[in-house]
Amino acid sequence: MVSESRGNIVFNVLTTLWTRYRLQTTVFTIFCGLWLIFYAISPSSFARPFTYTAILSVAPFTIIPALSLTYVIITGEMDLSFPSIMALGAWVLTVTWHAFGPTPLGLILALLAGLMAGFINGVLVTKCHIPSLIATIGTMFVWRGFVLIATGGFSISIGMWRGTPIYQALVGRFGGIPIQIVWAVVIAVILWIFLNLHKFGAHVYYTGDNRVAAQMLGINTDRVIITVFMIHGMLSAFAGVLVALEMGSFWPALGEIYLLESIAAVVVGGTPITGGTGTIFGTFIGGLILKWIETGILAVGVTGFWIKLVYGLVIIIALIAQVIIRKREIRRMKIIGA
């Protein structure tokens, strides 16, 4: 009797989740499905906490830029320059620390560099009217070129400061848990709150959904877009800093691998590339899915060459599922008043 009513409650919660958050539930189901598959194939590695700490120590590097990229994509824009901004931020921190030691100043300057890079992107898009895809290809090369020239193409070590308080606060371990995943969660929560509960988030959505209407109703869409690029620039720089600290070194190609991964995390998470809608939760899980695959495949014991293939398949399957869900939603909801 008791178990039956409890079963009912679970059922009700599940149906509510499904009807309200169809897309998010799908993404989450894919995530759980993958975990089950990996667990079934290789229980030994997926029963070990080490596997999870390994995933959680690298996942933030994909997830953090993907979270702020979600904002950019919701406004209907794109940013391809963030991997270079990651390198820029990491370089600024590295250079500052080598000059002044491991102080918060390095982090502050890195974040400011990211803000500035994002501001430039935003201005190019809104005031110079360059399509964001093109504008950010330009700045992508500019910032990558800049760090290459500045370092002469050499890596710079910062691993000697491992153990200092600021180092520990950014990429240390707390009870085995990598601190960087805590940062990712904190950032996700803040971005979620602003997107869903704040006026700014509403304007981000309207800017992507119907920019002309938003402008006619008095929303300064240029300012929204510039702000979104600045947030993205700052968080990309932060992610770059985390990468450098985790690896113990800055290198000029830092960030490059995250370009397509982070974009994939956003779209796998259910944000359409055309903007107007999208969720932070989806992106977070989307990022985890991609990292799950990577780690899962290695843990299962097949060669790493499989990673890309499975990546591609999962991205395609996730997108097909989303298309089906959206179509069915439209078919089920008859037009009211027609």
Partner: peptide
Amino acid sequence: VHQERTLAEDHPIWRNIFMGRE
């Protein structure tokens, strides 16, 4: 009330009514 639709189609009615003047 513009000739052009000044609505954010993907968003609920209440959000549209208060669009720009939340």
